[in-house]
């Protein structure tokens, strides 16, 4: 009856090298709009590198990435691919919002200034409109009272929630999360996951690198397990997390759970 909607992210045979090290080795992955894709795997398996390639902080060495049908980083001219300019790449990055493990809030700006920086400087929206929207976002992540706080005056959990609001203020099609709770004290993990759960429920397409298997189990539509730059196993969370087919996946999951 209903045709499958076209995937919003397509990675095809993506490879990335750092000198002799093959950080990504022919990674292929398609993500349907409105779904949550979790990526798990041991440290150094290429999870961060994959996210960084998606929003072009890193350049890929082979393969292709399409976001919303648009080829990333290149323009096709006849039988050649021409590298895009700095400004064109900046425009393509607007499709993706990124949340970093170490928050990376702008230290010299308050929570509110962090959130309106992109809308005002990059999207050239009016300051009034940007502030109104930022206040709504702060309310959504439960930090209305922190609008004038500098990052250093906030806890890790609060900083990460502001960072999520900053990314959302750009109205991205896809949100990328790189271990968003790994740098947090255990009692602060819950507040960030709650915001992400809420975001998933609102229908945002999300790609989440995480070690929170409970979160993946509950929220993800699909889980991939990566190791040494390759996707080892992929499937619905119940399958990959509870009855993994591959030995390496089983090993990793039991190591995380103990």
């Amino acid at each position: 009856m209903n045709a499958q909607p076209a995937p919003i992210v397509v990675a095809h045979q993506v490879s990335k090298r750092f000198g002799p090290l093959l950080a990504l080795n022919g990674v292929s992955l398609s993500i349907a709009p409105g779904t949550v894709q979790c990526i798990i795997g041991p440290s150094g398996s290429g999870k961060s590198t994959f996210l960084r390639c998606l929003n072009q902080i890193e350049k890929i060495d082979a393969g292709a990435i399409l976001i919303d049908g648009e080829l990333i980083g290149y323009r096709r001219v006849g039988d050649t691919l021409r590298e895009l300019s700095d400004a064109e790449i900046a425009r393509q990055r607007l499709a993706t919002g990124m949340v970093f493990q170490r928050f990376n809030l702008f230290h010299h700006m308050t929570a509110l200034e962090n959130i309106i920086e992109g809308p005002v400087t990059v999207l050239r929206r009016s300051r009034r409109e940007a502030v109104d929207e930022a206040m709504a976002l702060l309310a959504r992540v439960g930090l209305t009272d922190k609008r004038d706080a500098y990052p250093i005056e906030m806890s890790g959990g609060q900083q990460q929630r502001v960072a999520i609001a900053r990314a959302l203020a750009m109205r991205p099609r896809i949100m990328l999360f790189d271990e968003p709770t790994s740098a947090l004290d255990p009692e602060l993990v819950g507040e960030v996951l709650a915001v992400m759960r809420d975001l998933a429920r609102s229908g945002m397409t999300m790609i989440v690198v995480t070690h929170e298997l409970g979160f993946a189990r509950e929220v993800a539509h699909d889980v991939v397990f990566m190791d040494r730059g390759e996707i080892i196993e992929q499937g619905p969370p119940a399958q990959v997390l509870l009855s993994p087919q591959q030995a390496r996946t089983r090993e990793f999951i039991s190591a995380v759970l103990t």
Partner: peptide, 19 residues
């Protein structure tokens, strides 16, 4: 991480430097 965050909200190199 500051310039990576700036890139992630679509800033060009020059804007990142200035802002």
């Amino acid at each position: 991480g500051q310039s990576e965050a700036a890139k992630s909200i679509g800033m060009t190199r020059l804007t990142t430097l200035r802002r």
